[in-house]
């Protein structure tokens, strides 16, 4: 088979199969998740769309085969003797058990092999945006290398990508095996200590989605998510620009106190805030933590309240996480630190 470049498909492609879940959505609120921010049935990138078509074809094909087999079973039990006699032959076994599966499976396999070549495939022309994501117990270290005018920077638990440009994410693991999955974008790839794997896709519309760890990685495997944001190219460039800058020093007295508490409590030995004394590398980079959509690896929306709750009760909210609870901070100190972090936009 020759290598084919798939024709670009309009984002709003409609098909019978895709219309079905939407129709069902209108009928049953239970199906709401299909259109959700972490659903493989709601594709927002080229790979996920191809994989959804494969899913639809196999689901419909499987349903047809299943129905046919069940009809045969029903006939074998209840049909009049003449029909049953027709089924009760060795030829039935050969036709149903060998000929039919060999033909269908061969066709499916050819389709599958072709699809395997064109999904998670390097972008032609090498124009991909490269990002490195490292899985750690239980969060995601994200690194954007320098590219052209844009400087390198580190962030955490958030991956922002431009719409329409191929993205190549290099995947590593710092401790145990994790797996990287953005259901709306692509399949999943493991992150294995000592190896580097990669995943590639091209987002086709702006939106906010959720990525997950899918390889059991210990106590808080269930609380290891991240935010995914797809932006139009210009907005992405602006975001990237902002993220690469150092944190501005706090302006209000309240947040200045927050920075003081942050330093005094030793937060900087694990966390970095670029442009300050905090240079720790064990935990997530907090330079622009206030700009991120959530904290605690996809656990809570970012605001002063959740930040304060997180700092004082890490081990209650996410027992087993590497960060201790800072329950000894006074209410004012806690609010100040949270306020300091929240203004790191």
């Amino acid at each position: 088979m020759t290598r084919q470049t798939p024709a670009p498909r309009a984002a709003g492609r409609t098909s019978l199969f895709r219309a079905l879940p939407r129709a069902a959505l209108a009928l049953a609120p239970a199906l709401g998740g299909c259109m959700g921010p972490q659903s493989a049935l709601n594709p927002a990138a080229d790979d996920a769309a191809k994989l959804l078509l494969l899913t639809e074809i196999m689901t419909v094909g499987g349903a047809l085969i299943f129905t046919a087999v069940m009809i045969f079973v029903g006939l074998a039990v209840w049909a009049p003797p003449r029909w049953r006699g027709w089924l009760a032959r060795r030829e039935t076994v050969v036709a149903g058990g060998i000929v039919f599966p060999v033909l269908t499976l061969t066709a499916l396999l050819i389709y599958g092999l072709w699809l395997m070549r064109v999904t998670n495939a390097p972008a032609p022309g090498g124009d991909a945006l490269t990002i490195t994501v490292t899985g750690e117990q239980y969060w995601w270290r994200v690194h954007y290398p320098a590219e052209g005018d844009a400087a390198a920077f580190a962030t955490a638990n958030e991956v922002q990508v431009p719409v329409g440009r191929p993205v190549r994410i290099l995947l590593e693991a710092a401790d145990v095996v994790h797996a990287f999955w953005i259901p709306n974008y692509a399949g999943k790839v493991d992150m294995i200590p000592g190896r580097q794997t990669a995943i590639q896709f091209t987002p086709d519309r702006p939106g906010q989605f959720r990525g997950l760890c899918t390889e059991f990685c210990g106590d808080q495997h269930a609380r290891m998510a991240f935010d995914v944001v797809a932006l139009p190219p210009a907005e992405f460039a602006a975001w990237r620009q902002r993220q690469a800058t150092d944190a501005a020093p706090p302006a209000a007295a309240f947040t200045v106190l927050g920075r003081e508490v942050f330093t005094r409590s030793g937060c900087g030995s694990c966390h970095a805030v670029r442009g300050s004394d905090a240079k720790g590398e064990l935990g997530p980079d907090l330079t622009h933590v206030g700009s991120r959509r959530s904290i605690g690896a996809g656990l809570y929306p970012t605001n002063i309240g959740t930040l304060a709750g997180w700092i004082s009760g890490t081990q209650q909210l996410k027992p087993g996480a590497r960060m201790p609870s800072y329950g000894s901070l006074s209410g004012e100190e806690l609010r100040a630190v949270a306020g300091y972090l929240d203004q790191l936009k």
């Binding site: 009760a88 032959r89 058990g97 599966p101």
Partner: peptide, 21 residues
């Protein structure tokens, strides 16, 4: 995928046996 074939053979053998009796 190929391992589905032996299972298919058995399923249809059972169906044919049920039909014959």
């Amino acid at each position: 995928a190929a391992v589905a074939i032996p299972s298919g053979i058995q399923v249809f053998s059972w169906i044919a046996t049920v039909a014959s009796g």
